[in-house]
Design a binder for these strands. Structure first.
Lengths: 238, 238
DNA sequence: CGTCATTTTGAGGTATTTCAACGAAGGTGG
DNA sequence: CCACCTTCGTTGAAATACCTCAAAATGACG
């Protein structure tokens, strides 16, 4: 269902309209639109662990991921940190409310980003229905991802949540290339904060999945599904 | 922050763009746009407990709430039910993936809905940037609501989750009219499924808030904040 | 190769879930 | 108008699961 748009030469979007009767069709921007965006987009190359923007700061730009992984999180008063989303290739981020970002964005791996000034983007959107349409589909995509996360976090069992998380990552790995390997770019700590678990719980769940012979972890950032049957059963048995 | 758009005479949308630097501005549809939508929108009057559409059914329409409350939920294989969202006045719903609705929608109270055929809407969106812009803002609003829910569900304590939920409902009550009363249109069961708790836990949390002298429940569908100070403390202390 | 952050493992506490039963409310039909 | 029934809500006790605190081991990085 996930498809990657070509990114060579500039930012691209993958859009799926709300209520679409046509399904998850890949909608690439026209060349005209890509050049348009290129005109107002700045290409950034950032190292890992770099803050892209901070929560509550003035929201002047939106971003599109060209390559790499970015996380969006909020630091709660208790000192805990909630990871709201992971952004992968072609994902759009920079959601604001009242003119300020609703969360902090930080790179996980080395990334390529396309930064677009809202002041420049808005007038362009106002006169290009197709372009707004692309953004509409992109935001709808984010909404679906958020709903999925809510489902995941709502689960009671740690191993089930981890299984769903790995399933999600697998989709992205398949996206990039056909390997049985699941790449896990983020740390256990980030995973825990995304799943609404403690770091220890994620650890134990990982070991449990390994002991059960369902998943094999080769290194901390790569996993492989050993028993697909039972894995799918865990994922869907919520 | 929440503002209600006039709904007399047809569907209206309340939009907030992604990454807006101008803040939560109320953006009403122009009269031209309202009439345009009226042309393809059907006004529905539904009684409580009526299914609007079922999960996985073919997504042919999107809906806008004119009056009343609607819930969106998914039934999980385990028999449990997850309420993904409550929709109030001016909310847009009918999210699809692959041409099928991602959840079931059901009325809670008596509602007025505006039903819009996607087949009729899409071509209209394609040639009207302002209109797509409104929908973009609306979906962004839904995304923010979903992120908020994720934060809520991520909390460990039941009373805190219930407090945040009541806080959310209070915003909507204030929206409609200035009363210290919080209207709770949904059942305890729906509340529990939204918060990721059991019905019993919601009950106990309600009684706890009452015993602590923070909230007073007058009837099952109306609450009143007694101790605002401690209430806010609970809401923000996550 | 040493330092430091991250990860793993262990044991105990605490919250919610579960299971079960009771009480209340709303809706239907006689 | 009342009786009945179904659904929803409330309360109690035990079990499970995760969280917290603490310490050791592994891996990353300069």
């Amino acid at each position: 269902v996930q498809t990657v748009a070509a990114t060579a030469g500039g930012p691209s979007l993958r859009g799926v309209p709300i209520g679409s009767a046509t399904g998850d069709i890949v909608r690439l921007l026209s060349h005209r639109q890509q050049s348009q965006l290129s005109g107002i987009a700045t290409e950034l190359h950032l190292p890992p662990r770099m803050i892209v923007y901070r929560e509550d700061s003035c929201a002047q730009c939106v971003f599109i991921v060209g390559r790499g992984t970015v996380k969006a999180f909020r630091d709660l008063p208790s000192g805990k940190r909630r990871v709201m989303a992971f952004m992968f290739q072609d994902d759009l981020f920079g959601l604001a409310e009242g003119g300020h970002y609703v969360h902090t964005a930080q790179t996980i791996s080395a990334v390529t980003l396309y930064r677009i000034q809202v002041d420049a983007l808005t007038p362009m959107l106002r006169c290009d229905p197709e372009l707004v349409f692309q953004f509409l589909g992109k935001v709808a995509h984010e909404l679906r991802a958020s709903l999925r996360q809510t489902i995941i976090v709502g689960r009671r069992d740690a191993v089930g949540r981890l299984a769903m998380f790995l399933h999600m990552l697998e989709q992205h790995s398949r996206c990039l290339r056909h390997t049985p390997q699941i790449e896990i770019p983020m740390s256990r700590s980030d995973t825990a904060n995304y799943l609404g678990l403690t770091l220890e719980a994620v650890c134990r769940a990982s070991r449990t999945l390994e002991r059960m012979g369902i998943i094999a972890f080769t290194g901390r950032h790569v996993a492989r599904i050993v028993d697909r049957r039972r894995f799918d059963k865990l994922v869907t048995a919520l």
